[in-house]
Write a protein that binds this DNA or RNA. Structure first.
Lengths: 114, 114
DNA sequence: CAATCATTTCAATAATCGTTGAAATATGGA
DNA sequence: TCCATATTTCAACGATTATTGAAATGATTG
């Protein structure tokens, strides 16, 4: 991961509502959640939410797909893990830091799509 | 780590110059670097740098101490690790994510104080 | 004490950010 | 086709941010 990408991902996560959104998506696993489900869960206006989804998507932290009239957003675990990797890789000059190899996407522990 | 602290740490790292500063401190290990050394290494104005150091310090990511006429800044690995922990802890609903236990401060691989 | 060095403080500025409200777009069903 | 649902687009606003330049503070040396 490039520094630029790391800054983008950090910036995307460095906001209250967006961190909430991302964590919700993360917990939802690869199936994702509809925009409406997220809006309801967090009490955010749909247009505000679109703004935040865009930011997450630009940072490579989320994906969208359409399903019927709903847009379904899902976390991109790959980027999340690359970010953690980037932070720890540059940590402690590579020496005494425990590696911290992350993650595969959440299982099929679904969560409903609304 | 609280969500608030996580957002603060993420925000502190989510800026080009600040991420550079932090990584430099991280590589310098527990001994840290003088403000001047960082300023020279990154080509930043000293007042700009003070601003960024403050942000890092407020986020718990750096400490200062005075030594002669120099101020010496050092990374707080504890917070860095807590942040990674927070991100991965909330990752994948706690299930299939590899734990990713980080880090102890860098050894005594010093780096000079300028 | 005066001079110098290292860093911080302060005020100002342009740029970006998050939220809102109103209107537009796309999909599915009657 | 007309209507309702789900979400996005657009313009606007106040708030925060990063950077700058100039001046102030604190520590050391002569």
């Amino acid at each position: 991961m490039e520094k630029t990408d790391a800054v983008a991902a950090l910036a995307a996560l460095a906001q209250d509502n967006r961190l909430d959104v991302f964590r919700l998506l993360v917990q939802a696993g690869v199936e994702g959640l509809t925009a409406g489900a997220v809006a309801e869960a967090l009490g955010l206006a749909p247009n505000t939410l679109t703004f935040h989804f865009d930011r997450l998507r630009m940072a490579g932290l989320a994906t969208v797909r359409r399903e019927g009239r709903s847009m379904i957003y899902a976390a991109r675990f790959e980027t999340m893990n690359a970010l953690v990797g980037f932070l720890t890789e540059n940590c402690c000059g590579g020496a005494s830091c425990a590696p911290a190899k992350p993650a595969k996407p959440a299982g099929t522990r679904s969560k409903m799509l609304a």
